[in-house]
Amino acid sequence: MRIAYLHGGSIPSVWANSVHVMRMCDAFASAGHDITLYAAPGTHEADDPYAYYGVRHRFPIRTVPVPDGYSPAGYRQRAQRVRELLLEAGAPDLIYGRDPYSLVAAADVAPFVYEVHQIREDLTPPETDHRLLADPRLARLVVITHALARDLRATYPDLDPARVLIVPDCADPPRLDVESVRLPGREGVPRIGYVGHLYDGRGIDLILDVAERIPGADFHLVGGTPEDRDRWEAPCRLANVYFHGHRPPAELPGYYPLFDVVLAPYEEKVYLTGRLGETGRWTSPMKLFEYMSYGRALIASDLPVLHEVLTDRVNCLIRPPADPKAWAHAVLELIDDPGLRRSLGDEARRQVLDRYTWRHRADVVLAGLAGADPSGGTGPA
């Protein structure tokens, strides 16, 4: 099937939404589909975007700039250009995307799937999402959590439940072809890892509090823009804390196996960069699944939405997001009990490989749509 993926963000960039988009396009290509990605020009320097993200397929990427300083009017202008390019290339069999402006503009070109990760309150005009959800050519609405599906149905009571598909975020199976990195710090001490951005809602202050309580372990924080890294690293006086800054997504598989314990200390309110949106009620963090994919012993925040995937003492330990003492006790429990670390990590990896791979997700979101199965079946993840 010929699929056009419409993304309003930049490729390449340092933001998680770009990783999600590239992984989905890679999975569509792996399933045998002819996929073309339409994205904004990159905001991060990378000679080869495919190598930067570590994807296996070199699907076409068409860059379409956003005029007028990334304003809503600029996004609507860009959307019209995306529509023109789709028609010039010949209408695809299916349009897939997270960019509401381009989807509105191209809704008459082909049936479309709209993937939603939050309820948008920043769209202009405000009825943009309502228009998309009521469009008869909407083939499917993909949402990442049951919590988001419930809130969407409450916000849009006319939304047809049969069109809604709930599919969490995912991870690739562990990669064995990535060179391991060399971590700074002490030899022979436990290594506690965090991978992700450093902005508000990510629990960075909790990690530093726990690090101060456990001087016998080294804490490694991988990720963050230079500005966010400076915000936390400059005042930090802990000798057992190391900030690694942003790393290309393709390099992260070299970090995960080095950590004895990994942390996902999401706060009750999880903000996007610049506090441009709060998604803690609906979040399905990709890093959570990447931790699980590599069989790491995970400690995660006790947030209702995370219970859709996580179960305490089955595939992780769950602790209150504002209780550093409880987190320190959990870290020490895992340090002192290698059997528990192994059992939690093994079950987490098993669950990812069984139900949370990108290839599995690609097959699920397209299942039942015309031409969605070119190979005659859903292949291995």
Score class of each variant (00 low, 15 high):
A31G: 11
N240G: 13
P111A: 08
A264L: 14
P67A: 03
P324R: 11
I214M: 09
V364M: 08
D302V: 08
F28P: 01
I35T: 10
L159Y: 13
C316M: 07
P338F: 05
H244S: 09
L252V: 04
L183W: 13
L198T: 00
R98L: 09
V365H: 02
G216K: 01
S293A: 15
K325G: 06
G69S: 07
L252R: 08
R83D: 11
V55N: 10
D260T: 07
L366F: 03
V314H: 07
R247A: 06
I299F: 00
G32Y: 06
A105I: 00
P92S: 00
I318P: 14
D108W: 11
L123A: 13
A300Y: 01
D47L: 13
P184V: 09
T279G: 02
P215E: 08
A134L: 07
P173A: 11
R229E: 13
R2S: 15
G9T: 02
V309L: 07
H117W: 05
L306N: 04
T279A: 12
A239M: 11
R2H: 10
G295T: 03
W282S: 10
V167S: 15
D354S: 15
A79T: 03
F59Q: 07
H197M: 02
V19T: 01
D93C: 06
L123V: 13
I144Y: 00
P100K: 14
V305Q: 06
L340G: 01
P304A: 06
E268Q: 06
K325D: 13
I35Q: 02
E290S: 01
I335F: 12
V14A: 08
D228R: 05
F59W: 05
R359E: 15
E88H: 05
D93E: 15
D47T: 12
P338K: 05
V309S: 04
A348V: 12
P324G: 01
L258E: 11
G379I: 12
E45N: 12
S293T: 07
R98I: 08
P157D: 12
T273E: 04
A154Q: 13
V164Q: 10
R137S: 13
S284L: 04
T225M: 01
A73M: 02
G280I: 04
D135H: 14
A139V: 02
W15L: 00
T279Y: 12
P190C: 09
P253F: 09
P235S: 09
L306K: 05
D200G: 06
V142M: 05
I166A: 04
P265F: 05
A348G: 11
Y271G: 01
G188T: 07
V178M: 15
Y70P: 00
Q80L: 09
L298C: 05
G368N: 09
H360Q: 06
R296H: 06
C236P: 07
R350W: 05
L87A: 14
R341G: 09
G295W: 03
R275W: 01
D200H: 12
G203F: 00
R186G: 05
G201S: 06
A51E: 11
H246N: 08
H146A: 04
D354K: 15
D158N: 11
G379V: 11
A51R: 14
D260H: 13
W358A: 06
A322T: 15
G193R: 03
L37S: 02
W15I: 00
Y194I: 01
Y114F: 15
T378Y: 00
V365G: 06
R342P: 03
G185D: 01
P324W: 14
T225S: 14
T36I: 09
I95C: 04
